[in-house]
């Protein structure tokens, strides 16, 4: 019985610690570069985004997450021939108020993957693949299904619809 209690306490603590870690990374999730390449086909954003990871694959996944993160929270910078894109959730508190939702959304293999597709030919290569301390930094071209992402967040009550209130 005591052992069971201990085990439960331990697992609770470790789960809590894990959550804390995740939360921490959520909060400091700002350190990445993203640029708009060109005006994407209807409903999409065509961007180049960077990610960091222990391996090239992990860095590529991180870059994909970053692209979706940028569309939701940061917005995309403009370029010479493409205007900037505002974030889907401009309210800075969105992440906090819907933290559980985004934990699930950005989980490994989570729903976010449905809204991003890599358009880099093959693997990240050349100057877009850099060995840095602790791993790799890669730059990939991605297409974010911005409109679909927006609809999804609107449907889930995280983002407001333009027509809400009318």
């Amino acid at each position: 019985m005591i052992a069971l209690t201990l085990l439960m306490t331990f697992s609770a603590v470790s789960a809590n610690a894990q959550n804390k870690d995740r939360r921490k990374s959520f909060k400091s999730w700002d350190n990445y570069e993203i640029t708009t390449e060109k005006v994407g086909v209807d409903g999409t954003k065509f961007v180049k985004v960077w990610g960091f990871g222990k391996t090239v694959d992990a860095a590529t996944m991180a870059a994909k997450e970053n692209a979706v993160h940028a569309c939701i929270f940061r917005g995309l910078p403009g370029s010479a021939t493409a205007m900037s894109t505002p974030p889907i959730c401009p309210n800075p508190n969105t992440l906090e108020t819907h933290e559980d939702y985004f934990q699930t959304f950005f989980a490994a293999g989570g729903p976010y993957l449905a809204y991003v597709s890599m358009t880099t030919d093959g693997v990240p290569s050349g100057t877009d693949r850099r060995k840095v301390k602790g791993g790799y930094k890669v730059g990939i071209y991605v297409q974010v299904m911005y409109d679909n992402l927006k609809r999804k967040l609107e449907a889930d009550g995280v983002a407001r619809k333009l027509s809400s209130g009318f």
């Binding site: 390449e37 060109k38 005006v39 994407g40 086909v41 999409t44 065509f46 358009t119 030919d121 071209y141």
Partner: peptide, 15 residues
């Protein structure tokens, strides 16, 4: 144009 250019062009509106 390389393959990457072609893929990029497909992803952009001007095509």
């Amino acid at each position: 144009a390389k393959d990457q250019d072609v893929i990029n062009a497909r992803a952009s509106r001007v095509g």
